[in-house]
Nucleic acid binder design. Sequence first.
DNA 1: TCAAAAGTGTTTGTAATACACCCATGA
DNA 2: TCATGGGTGTATTACAAACACTTTTGA
Lengths: 236, 236
Amino acid sequence: MHTKNIHAHLDEIKDCFQTAVSVDCVIFGFDNTALKVLLIESDLKEYKGSWSLLGNIMRPDEDLDEAAYRVLRERTGLEDVYMEQIQTFGALKRHPAGRVITVAYYSLVNIEHVALKKHNNELHWHTVKDIQHMAFDHKQILDTCYERLKRQLIEQPIGFNLLPGKFTIRDLQNLYEAILDVKLDRRNFRKKFLSLNVLEDLNEAQEAVSHRPAKLYKFNFEKHELQKKRFLGIGF
Amino acid sequence: MHTKNIHAHLDEIKDCFQTAVSVDCVIFGFDNTALKVLLIESDLKEYKGSWSLLGNIMRPDEDLDEAAYRVLRERTGLEDVYMEQIQTFGALKRHPAGRVITVAYYSLVNIEHVALKKHNNELHWHTVKDIQHMAFDHKQILDTCYERLKRQLIEQPIGFNLLPGKFTIRDLQNLYEAILDVKLDRRNFRKKFLSLNVLEDLNEAQEAVSHRPAKLYKFNFEKHELQKKRFLGIGF
DNA sequence: TCAAAAGTGTTTGTAATACACCCATGA
DNA sequence: TCATGGGTGTATTACAAACACTTTTGA
């Protein structure tokens, strides 16, 4: 067997360095009623009037994940938010400017923490369910990320990332119902979450509501014994 | 807001076309005892003696997914096998030849259907559990794909892809036990799978075994009512 | 005192788990 | 006839699902 050195290898593949890699961030927020996604007006003539995800080309000198965090940081000013790589989209004609494959991430942010700056006035929060068309293949990317979010929401306690630091159990239930598009029983939902040992009672209550005020909780990551009861059984 | 045409956009990003995109295939097989993965001896001097996944650079004129199928086809002669994109790895120094990000796929094949050709004599099936080191970041990729496989195996009936067309329920259980590294109750396992309505009884039996011969089954995709009982509840 | 949402407990159904005996075959 | 693994049924347990009334607050 022959071996090749790096340079022989580089030479062999140099024709393949014609492809750009981009990252696209599906930034989800929740406004207490519906799941939102942060979009920008497309700056490509071909897609004028369409909305697109927040993305950018990955720089040759930065990690892939770092590129995604950079996009998020530049657009929202946020750091240390929940973010997950979801899928890479590499269809041939997906970008009119040439061969660009894109790695899609989604992140969950507290919508109140996103201060849209003046120079970001092309940015808007859109209701996910109302979105029909987007630029590029971004609708497909959004759909994929939304499906993954729904699945994650069922399997891991990540919904907190979309809520303010203090929230009521009803807030949490509203979030689940809105994102999963289901109706849940109040008593069972409450029972379930309280038994999970992830909610810390702040001993505070809602104020200025014209009904019995609800208790406020915060999420306590430490308390969560991850995957404590992982199914031994087969779940299908 | 100003708009840019494609060419302005291309110009802006042209410095970023310095990154190659590769695909790496984690090809899993099962030899009735242990989970195997098909590896090749690295042809890079830097990794001489190490094993690596089967991969290749994506061509600028082919779909990303097609590149993965091409690698699989070229190496195993197989088509139409189970294959899934898992994750994209894009750390800065992951490839010594330059900036190469790689999209990892795993596929499940019937190990008996893979005829390793003469010119593929650097290819070998390795027992997944015994693998300690690999070239590049391929161990990390393998680990990621293996974790995903385990999860998928619990949630979807995909194990069949690793088995011959005719198999016994015990074969299937061996597969689950080996991959998930658990012991399962024979009676419950059988009950579970028979109730799933995905096994078609071939009315054939094992031959030449020195004990009561087991029935042979095949998987019947049509019968499987996908996600019929999808949890409404929350699974963590 | 009324409206509106918060808070609580019990019952029921379903599915996973644990477990022991008989059956068919080749040696 | 024996050794080996195949095939079956039931009791128990755990958890999700269904369901109704009392409590607290502001108006």
